[in-house]
């Protein structure tokens, strides 16, 4: 039981790093009033270009930068369309997903099946030897450790800095923000750009660290899950981390059950993360609406 729980929690942390990056990125964007349904595309861009850079240069830092830039730059297309051209956010996001899928499928084609050095797990000395907590938290790769820093940082940034306040003000009401001397468009551009960078890093974690491989469409819906988890977390980074852990934990839980010879059909077990997320949402249903940035209501809440 003890080992089982440890396995589930370790698996949750390990497998959901990529989703967490995208969730943080989407949180930042949505706090500024921009939904990016194209996180899937940004993640793919990061996964692919990170891998390609790694294959050519064998330089981790450079690959991470390439991945983050790829995610950030592609999300700028979205920013341009929805901020400057006032296009529909959902349609533009979905188009961005197709863009990411297409471009990475094309550029990445020759790199399928290629071998790279990749990023390996790096257990932290001493810390990883703490019973139970050690293996769960401190036996991962650098990119996972980075999320331990990034998540609280984003939280502090959003809620306890002037810049964070500016982002949220724009997300609540552009006009008011403008009237109080902010530059809403610039802030939204930046939020979307950094959000995309985070998603790109998430993608890179998947290709460079987690699987050491690249293949077309390898994010397999993680970007969409991230968007769902942002709503789930009520636009809060810390709750976002909790959400991804819950989601990842459900996946790890069902895999651990299967490996132990569960009699339940694996397809039914596979539903756990989705049903669990829904169940939690049902319990907290009502409060959600108030947490939503006002600026997003135009996108999400047609009927009120």
């Amino acid at each position: 039981m003890f080992l089982f729980l440890q396995g589930v929690l370790t698996g949750a942390v390990r497998s959901e790093t990529s989703v967490l990056y995208a969730t943080l990125g989407e949180t930042l964007g949505e706090r500024a009033g921009i939904t990016n349904l194209g996180m899937e595309g940004c993640m793919l861009m990061g996964a692919c270009l990170g891998f390609v850079t790694m294959a050519h240069t064998d330089n981790l830092a450079l690959s991470m930068m390439a991945a983050a830039l790829a995610g950030g730059l592609s999300s700028l297309i979205h920013a341009f369309l929805v901020v400057t051209r006032r296009a529909n956010q959902l349609a533009s996001g979905l188009a961005l997903m197709f863009f990411g899928l297409g471009v990475t499928g094309f550029i990445g084609r020759p790199y399928v099946g290629m071998k790279i050095r990749g990023l390996n797990e790096l257990p932290i000395p001493y810390l990883s030897e703490i019973p139970f907590v050690g293996p769960i938290l401190f036996t991962h790769d650098v990119l996972t450790y980075l999320t331990y820093l990034l998540t609280p940082l984003l939280w502090v940034f959003l809620f306890y800095t002037r810049w964070g306040l500016a982002v949220r003000a724009v997300g609540e009401n552009r006009t008011v923000a403008y009237a109080s001397g902010l530059r809403p468009s610039l802030i939204q551009y930046l939020a979307v750009f950094f959000g995309g960078m985070l998603a790109g890093l998430g993608g890179a974690h998947l290709s460079i660290a987690y699987t050491h491989m690249w293949v077309e469409g390898m994010t397999a819906g993680r970007g969409f899950i991230a968007v769902a988890l942002v709503i789930f977390s009520m636009w809060h980074p810390l709750r976002g981390m909790l959400g991804t852990l819950l989601f990842g934990g459900a996946i790890a839980f069902q895999l651990q059950l299967q490996a132990r010879g569960s009699r339940i059909s694996p397809y039914i077990l596979d539903m756990t993360p989705y049903l669990l997320t829904l169940a939690v949402l049902l319990l907290w249903g009502r409060t959600r609406k108030h947490a939503m940035p006002e600026g997003l209501k135009a996108v999400f809440e047609g009927v009120d």
Partner: peptide
Amino acid sequence: LPYSTVNIIMALIFFIVLGSG
């Protein structure tokens, strides 16, 4: 050519239609 080529074409057309206002 990979199938993804048409995804790029599709996305670009959408971008332009969306951006054209």
